[in-house]
Design a protein around this nucleic acid. Structure first.
Lengths: 112, 112
DNA sequence: CAACTATATGCGTATATGCTCATATAAAGT
DNA sequence: ACTTTATATGAGCATATACGCATATAGTTG
C-alpha cells in the first residue's frame, strides 16, 4: 500500500472489511484462544465465556474472511488460524498501542 | 499477543478499537493520500473526493487514535501519518488479501 | 427410528457510527 | 470591524451489526 500505486475503491473496501472483521473483542478473544492450536466450538465457548450461538456466528465470520480454517470430525468442528499474517498483525497493533500508552503516561507524569 | 499471556478485556477492547478505526474506506483513503507526505484539509478533500465535513470528522478520528498528527499553519491545518506501524500494517493486510484472492482465482479456474 | 449432543441459523432488538446539512469557530486580509 | 477562507462541530437520519432467544440441522448412539 505504501510504495504501490493507490488502491482501487474495491481494494480499499476489501482492506476495510478485513480490518472490520478484526474490530470485535469477541473475535479477538477467539483468535487469541486459537494461538496455541486448534479447538472445537465447545472448547472455544468455554475459553471465551460467550454463548454458543454468538461464538458460532463469530467463527463463521472469521472463516468467511479466511482468517480461520474449519475441520469437521464427527459431531465436533475444529477451528484453527489459517492466515499466518494474523499473529504478526496483532503484534504490530499491540506494540503500537503500548508505545502510545506509555508515551501518554510519561506526558501525564511530566505534567503533574 | 501470540507468545504473551492472554490480553485483558480492556486491552482487547483497545486493540479492537484500533482495528475499527482502520475499518473505513474513507479513512484508508486519507491514510493513503498521506503516504507521500503531509497535506492540509482542503488538499485531502480534493484527494479523496469526500465532503469537507466528512473528511474533517475522519481526520479527527484518526488523530484521536494517534494514527495522524496535526499541525496548524495560519488558516491551514496539516495532517501527517504519525504512527510508523501503519504502513507495515496496511502492507501486511494487502499481502494477505492478494494471496487469498489469487488462491481463490486458482481454485475457480481449476474447477472450470 | 428415537433420543441426544454439537453446531448453525432465522429473527427481532438495541446500539453504534457514517453521512449530510447547516452552522460555528478561527485566522487572515481589507 | 467586516468579509472571506479554512476547518470543526451539532443534529438528525439511515444503515450495519452484535447479541439473545428460540429453533433448525447434522451426526452419533441406543
Amino acid at each position: 500500500m505504501s510504495k504501490h500505486r493507490p488502491l482501487s475503491e474495491d481494494a480499499l473496501q476489501l482492506v476495510a472489511q478485513r480490518f472490520a472483521v478484526l474490530a470485535e473483542p469477541m473475535r479477538l478473544r477467539l483468535i487469541q484462544a486459537l494461538f496455541d492450536g486448534e479447538k472445537n466450538v465447545t472448547e472455544l465457548v468455554a475459553a471465551t465465556g460467550g454463548t454458543q450461538a454468538n461464538v458460532s456466528r463469530h467463527l463463521q465470520t472469521l472463516t468467511a474472511a479466511h482468517i480461520l480454517g474449519r475441520r469437521k470430525e464427527g459431531l465436533l468442528v475444529f477451528y484453527r488460524i489459517s492466515d499466518p499474517t494474523i499473529p504478526k498483525l496483532c503484534e504490530l497493533v499491540c506494540g503500537s498501542l503500548e508505545k502510545t500508552l506509555s508515551r501518554q503516561v510519561a506526558q501525564f507524569e511530566a505534567a503533574g
